[in-house]
Nucleic acid binder design. Structure first.
Lengths: 114, 114
DNA sequence: TTCAAGCATCGGAAAATTCCGATATGACGA
DNA sequence: TCGTCATATCGGAATTTTCCGATGCTTGAA
């Protein structure tokens, strides 16, 4: 049984975490989407449920980004797995919104890692 | 001639910049290297020139990371193009060190973009 | 000048990512 | 119950990234 060695200021889990975030953001469209989600009502048309509460549905993101439906769905999954967005299913829609806590913690994670 | 439209809080150039940073960090080895460069003397053996001043030579990084010489050189180029490290050539060695200003500015860039 | 060390670049095989259309699932309305 | 809409997932072609060995360049010592 190997004894884990203390390797620095940041745990491996945190580094893996940061890596996932970087991979998720290492795509121009996904990075843009994150920007649009900062001010949803500025970038997306009105929809059934209030944008500011639940977020933006996949269809709106797909149209805005000019990508296929399947790609839009996959992109949002990638962002969600990285913890950058949260989702709520209401009826036939899945609404995505920024994960504010997580995003607010990123600068600190960055400062601690590089 | 198209008139550029104001599209939000962050310029396209800044987004491209952030994208390059994310791409550079979206690799486990490169991310690790950035961490090692925070405390070079803790992670690398002594070398001809003082680590704290000029940085770490490619050979040390290569050995620490367990990658080939060519890969080490390429990885450092990627990090440099993203602005994350600076280099100094002294004799036969190329020393790489963190770009402190740039790294210090990252949290703000991040906060402004997502 | 010659040799070796350190680094950068080239060429390419393998792996991962991108992004699509097709298809499946569940919700809603007629 | 059917058909439609929004979304998720599957399978795969195209592109990009990864990472290597081979090669070329520059420096410093002999």
């Amino acid at each position: 049984m190997a004894i884990p060695r203390y390797t620095g200021a940041v745990s491996n889990a945190e580094l893996d975490d940061l890596l996932e975030v970087c991979k998720a953001l290492a795509n121009p469209t996904r990075l843009q989407i994150m920007g649009w989600l900062r001010d949803p009502s500025d970038h997306f048309a009105p929809q059934a449920d209030p944008v500011e509460e639940v977020g933006v549905c996949v269809k709106q993101i797909q149209e805005k980004a000019g990508i296929s439906q399947s790609t839009a769905s996959q992109f949002m999954s990638v962002l969600q797995r990285a913890g950058l967005v949260e989702s709520t299913r209401i009826g036939q829609w899945t609404y995505y919104r920024r994960n504010r806590e997580r995003i607010a913690a990123l600068p600190e994670l960055l400062s601690a890692s590089l």
